[in-house]
Design a protein around this nucleic acid. Structure first.
Lengths: 331, 331
DNA sequence: CCTCGGTTATGAAACGTTTCAAGATGTGAG
DNA sequence: CTCACATCTTGAAACGTTTCATAACCGAGG
């Protein structure tokens, strides 16, 4: 900036004014400074600016897994909101590694970002609480949080209920739930929701096939187990804890020559892009991912702008059932 | 830091030494300072540190589309390398919007990141060249670049050749190419590669069904067009410019009651996770995404560490064909 | 001709670190 | 007891901005 000032024949302060309050500078001077900036290729040093007082105008989303379409959609929602407010979002991929998560949180705090959105690898990580205690606005995304933090989640019990209710409605009585481990809050909630639906209807049975992970391979394995059962006892429908399982199950059914949905109706969860693209388009429970992200960003920005008097909110959204061919043969 | 120094009864310089060169500080003092840091919850101000001289130890990957699994895999490769070097990676999603891309580049330069990896929305964007001219290390990922920049790409002509050769090998003579628009370099190269293979073999015909985009819906549409042809003239195999098209095509085939691969063999491109998860697992041309990212990051770090005497490299990797059920009925 | 008000431009302080030359303290040899 | 030397600590300068009180300038009104 010193060079720019020298070349334009003005003082440092004037260059700063051109950059930050151009209306206070006469047109002639402003133009001189601007051409000096142009010819010298001057680029503001954000560190210095930030040091002097300006905020960083930066948010960060520490995300569990960038390769999961669910989270990238959430991220898009966050970015949209941030964009509209003139803020930038850094995406940090923790890869479900608590150690990496902690490293990122450290870094972001040192970087003085305005706030952190996080889908925690380890929700109990004391680092998150400590961060918040030191005054950093934090919003937890897609995981519950206590009353001393904002969070944005989707009602998984309702999601399970919707799925099971749909299957009951179209005449299924023997339903399998595929997913696990049950220690995952989301899995437990979805099971609870399905059971709630059965209880309310007063009919139907739910057989839980617990899996060790929520991926395609486990879906295939579950398909094998289902196919191995005698037809009379075999569930006629499967509710999968996510779409990856559902896709794996569908694949195995096709491989074994069983028809979907005639021999086995399938409901997935998350409504990822590939649910619709499957050979038999998948019925799935859809979460408002985009809205999740937008709301989380809104909450964060609100807290960052008015730290005093901010009231933490725990927002819960309702999921929706999207019915497709995998539960409805005649479209 | 001043507070820490006061509380520990030492000078500012000593606190800095504890942070940066602990071996120069006596154990007693070091411990005193450390507990002061602890109790005060002191967190270094990265802006100040950076201002004074340290680099930012940060890279950025400006990516075309975070929701495309291809790019997230590349990003993982980048992150791995960066991690190993103690650098952090910010992911910036341009969403294929040249305007957003430019905004991010601006910001990153102001932030003084050590280098930028970019899969450009608009490769011709003068902003990229300008950035490089001002001394910022830049590596172009998955797009070609001139000799005045490092780039890392995959040989698309070879990929097209591999796919077509495979189809010829298993006895197909009438092959459809599905993809577009042809103005995309990658599409043109893959077509050229397929034609090269046919020419070399001296047999087979390639019918190009041009699409307006590379997505599932276009794949379905292409499937309809193919199915509408009289069986005698209809291609017996389709080579799709990416896996989304291939999945759409597969879906349409299933819907119309045509068998894959018996009535229509399908080869995709990219080998995304869902290629294997499809009802009929897809044969696909696989690109070394991970390696792409790692190599790009290596090049960038090398340039950042030794800007003088750096020689720009254009690295080209070979793709590989992964054969699955969609071209090979009897596994 | 002087004063006043308004518009522009200036200069210095401040932000929170790191670095480095120089000072203080302690140790062992002579 | 002194000196040389090593170890530890200190203080001040520097990094590149922004901000704000103040100065310079200019034209108009008295």
């Amino acid at each position: 900036m010193k060079d720019v000032a020298a070349r334009a024949g003005v003082s440092l302060g004037t260059v700063s004014n051109v950059l930050n309050r151009p209306e206070r500078v006469s047109d002639r001077t402003r133009r001189r400074v601007e051409t000096a900036i142009e010819t010298l290729g001057f680029v503001r040093n954000e560190s210095a600016r930030q040091l002097r007082g300006g905020g960083s105008r930066t948010l960060a989303y520490v995300v569990l897994d960038t390769s999961n379409p669910f989270f990238t959609d959430v991220a898009r929602g966050i970015q949209e909101t941030a964009d509209a407010q003139g803020l930038v979002v850094y995406l940090c991929n923790s890869g479900d590694d608590p150690h990496r998560q902690a490293a990122y949180l450290d870094l972001l705090e040192q970087q003085r970002v305005e706030g952190v959105l996080i889908t925690p690898a380890d929700a109990a990580d004391p680092g998150i609480a400590a961060l918040a205690r030191r005054g950093m606005p934090v919003v937890v995304v897609d995981r519950g949080a206590g009353p001393d933090r904002c969070s944005v989640t989707v009602d998984d019990v309702l999601g399970g209920d919707l799925a099971a209710t749909h299957l009951l409605d179209i005449g299924h009585e023997r339903v399998a739930f595929i997913g696990g481990p049950r220690t995952l809050g989301q899995v437990a909630d979805r099971i609870a929701g399905a059971e709630r639906a059965l209880t309310r209807a007063g009919r139907g049975t739910l057989t839980v096939l617990e899996t060790s992970r929520l991926d395609v391979a486990e879906g295939r394995r579950a398909g094998e187990r289902l196919a191995g059962l005698p037809a009379a006892r075999r569930p006629t429908a499967a509710f999968c804890a996510n779409d990856l399982l559902a896709l794996g199950l569908l694949q195995q059914m096709v491989r074994l020559g069983m028809r979907v949905p005639e021999d086995m109706a399938i409901v997935g969860y998350d409504d990822i892009e590939f649910a619709e693209a499957a050979a038999v388009p998948l019925t799935s429970v859809s979460q408002p991912r985009h809205l999740l992200g937008r709301t989380a960003a809104d909450l964060l920005i609100a807290e960052a702008r008015a730290p005093e008097g901010h009231v933490h909110q725990q927002v819960v959204f309702d999921p929706e059932l999207v019915v497709r061919t995998s539960t409805r043969p005649h479209q």
